[in-house]
Each structure stands twice: as C-alpha cells, then as structure tokens.
Design a binder for these strands. Sequence first.
DNA 1: GAGTATTGTGAGCATGCACTTACTTTAATA
DNA 2: TATTAAAGTAAGTGCATGCTCACAATACTC
Lengths: 194, 194
Amino acid sequence: MPRPSQIDEQRKKLLPIVCQTFSELGYRRTTTAELAQRCEVRENILYRLWPDKKAMFLAAIDDIFQARAEKWEQILADLPSPESRVERLIAYEAEHQGEFGFYRVIFTALAETDDDEMREALVRMYRQFHKLVSQQITTGHEEDRDHLTVSDAAWGLVGLATISNIIVELNLLGPRQRKQMFASVAQVLVSGTA
Amino acid sequence: MPRPSQIDEQRKKLLPIVCQTFSELGYRRTTTAELAQRCEVRENILYRLWPDKKAMFLAAIDDIFQARAEKWEQILADLPSPESRVERLIAYEAEHQGEFGFYRVIFTALAETDDDEMREALVRMYRQFHKLVSQQITTGHEEDRDHLTVSDAAWGLVGLATISNIIVELNLLGPRQRKQMFASVAQVLVSGTA
DNA sequence: GAGTATTGTGAGCATGCACTTACTTTAATA
DNA sequence: TATTAAAGTAAGTGCATGCTCACAATACTC
C-alpha cells in the first residue's frame, strides 16, 4: 500500500495564503504563478488541490466570510448582555473596516457575475451576511435619536444606492421589495438629517 | 494641405458604444477586439482615438457619470418646487437602479484600484456623486418618521458597510471621520427600526 | 525490502489579447 | 490636378498566463 494522501491537510494549510493573496490582488491580478510562489509549491500542486483557479477563489470567499462570522460570534460571546450587541458590532466594524481585504475580494467577484458559480457564491455570502445583520438588530432601540449631518446622510444614501445595485446585479430581492426597501431606508436617512 | 482630422468627432461618435460595452462586460472581459467589432472599425482605429484600453475605460467612466448627472438635472428641472426634490430623485433611483450598467463599471473599476489613474477617476466620481447627493438633502424634512423593518435596516447596514469599505479603499475620508460617519448612520438605521 | 501511490520538479503548450507595423486608399486643400 | 496627411486594411508580434505532462523522488504499507 502507498502512503496516505494528505490533500485535505494541505488544502487547509495553504488556504490562508490563498485568501491573503486574493485579498491583496483581487481575482484577475492574482496569477496561479503568484499563488504557487507564495505557497512555496509549484503551480502543479495547486491544481491537485483545486480543479482550477476559480475553485481556489471560491474557496477563499467562503473562508474569508467564515472568518468574519466567527469573529462576530467571538465578539458577541465576550458580551452576553442582550443589549448593546448591535452597538458592539457596529463599533467593531467601524474600527476594523477593510482590514481583511474582504471587500477587495467582493469587488473583484462582483466583476465576474457573468459566471454562474461566482454569482452563486456571492449570493450565498450576501444572504448569510444580511441574515447575520438582521438577527442582531433587536427591536426596542428607541433611545434619543441622533441627527445626521448632511454629509453623513449623503454617504448613507450612496451606500444604499450601492447595495441596491448589488441587489439588482445578484437578484437578491425582487424589484418590488427592492424599491420599497430603498425608499424606506432613504426616507429614514433623509428625515433623520439635522 | 490634407484633409482635416476628424478624431474628435469620431471619439464622440464611438464613445457611447464603448460605454455600452464596458457596462455590459466590465473592464477585463471587454477586449479591444470586441470594442472594435461593436464600433465597426479596426482595433487600429481605436488606438488612434485613445492611447490604450485604459484610456477608453476612463473616458467611459466619465461619460457614464456625466450622463447620470445630466439625467438628475433634467429631473429636477421638470420639478422646480423646492420641496420633495430629494424624494423625486430617490423615487427615480429606486425605479431605475442598475439600468445604465453604471455599477458594473464601478465594480470592475474597484477591482483595479492598484492603478493610480483608475483610482483617481473613481475618487473624482465618488466625490462628485456624494456632493450631488449632499446638495439635494435639504433640511427640514421632519414629517412623520416611518419605521424600518428589520430586513430593510439590515440592507441599509450592509450598504453602509459597503460604502465604508469603498471609502477606505479610495481614501475618501480620514479614519476618524469615516468611523464617525459609520456610527451615526448605523445608529439612525438601527434606532429607526420598528 | 518490495511495491505502490503520493509528492515534487521542470519544462512547455496553447491561447487570448493588448498593441503594432507596413501598406493602400481616400479626400481636402492649394 | 498635385500634394499630403488622414482614414482604412490586414496581418502579425510578443507576452502573460491558465493549465498540463512526463518523469523523478519519496515514504508509507505489507
């Protein structure tokens, strides 16, 4: 009998490096040669772990999102008080934005939505993300409502427009729901402006 | 004397086709061969109009944004009443989201932010966009504040996270301002949730 | 230690694609 | 009508890059 395969172990070992590379360079600019070099193996080996470059990228998307979700859980675990959970996450996100190259990966993936698998991976990811956010928005946060500056509200609207377009691109909501969502959120942002 | 150059005219004539192509396919997937075919000229000719593919893309970004801004002006011109200007634009955006392939261009551009010119074009565009939005958010929209559903608020937050990452990526705000903006908008979205 | 499948090496193939070059044809001016 | 640069044609070049193949070395089981 021959030696036992360690493909799974190696996949697990190299995945963080693959994630890091895609986060830095995005999809297109990441070459298989670059990946191999950083992983300190030949390209050949990578193709024994994943069928093609796209599979490497999809694996990276899943892993990066997973890491983010785990980070969130960890934060919430430290803070068992039911209140201020959202506030805690918001503070964390505000602080660490763009740290994991998460969105660089997302942007480059969004540039490839003509590919079905890529599209599906994105849809899965956004659905999970949105669900995660939803679960944390507990009701009863009435408190004293702060007013927004015009500039802040404008950024909020630009963000809203962006996510709306992503929703269109990925068919995350039907047109009717999407429009209603857009109107509601925009309304809150605008009317909350001092 | 030879015949006068009509380069400017031809540039202007072909630009819409170039825009359309980039909107459909994004940056990378748009090949110069494809552009030439759609423009019904040889690749050669395109390279007499623009120095390289990137220049064609940058021209497209500018033009697409310009078209959007003009559309907005046109909408506001039809509606000289100072009130409900924002509402009108919001309604328009909600209705026509994703129609011009605007964001497909933006996403693929965001995948190329390692390139300085590309980056600068995006920064210019976002600055203008945000300014435009800001100008329209008139104060005094107190009215009766609608409450958001949890789902809508969550989408708002995802959009906020997205734009925040874009802001980081493009250095549109300093960290301090960005965090403050994030917190304020998130606060309004969360506390506005029924 | 023999046998076998795994792991590693290195070269290379095929293709897509941005960009070029050498040339012909056209038409506006003087 | 002669001149001259622009407009058009056709072919090609060179490079990056995803992916493969033939083969050598290794180490695990029996």
